[in-house]
């Protein structure tokens, strides 16, 4: 629901840094536990970048999972979403570390003449 506002923030931040250069690619880091849908971001990105230096640029999304530990078997649990279970079947997990990232990692811009 909020992905358009998020996309606007991304485009605004990149425009501010790119100046007049054409942006070729923007790389984001999105944790698996943050309530942002990558598919919805991609949909919004094309619309929001229209008629900006980011128009036609690629959007690369790196998903970063949260990591929890199982309170029953002690194993590490990769949290692909907030309801991930331990492979042993337990849902008793420690609070996850990471997975809440929502960052612009970098952008590639066109070479200056």
């Amino acid at each position: 629901m909020h992905e358009l506002a998020i996309t606007r923030n991304i485009v605004e931040a990149c425009r501010a840094r790119a100046g007049n250069a054409r942006v070729l690619c923007v790389t984001l880091e999105i944790g698996t536990l943050t309530c942002v849908m990558p598919e919805a971001l991609r949909f919004c990105y094309e619309i929001v970048t229209d008629a900006t230096p980011l128009a036609g640029s690629e959007l690369e999304i790196i998903r970063l999972p949260g990591i929890s530990r199982c309170r029953d078997c002690g194993g590490e649990v990769i949290m692909h979403d907030p309801l991930s279970c331990c492979p042993c079947g337990s849902v008793h997990l420690t609070p996850p570390q990471g997975g809440d990232e929502l960052r612009i990692r970098s952008m590639d811009i066109e070479e200056a003449d």
Partner: peptide
């Protein structure tokens, strides 16, 4: 590549 390392929000 220009590193931004900037939180979206």
């Amino acid at each position: 590549t220009v590193p931004l390392e900037q939180a979206v929000l």
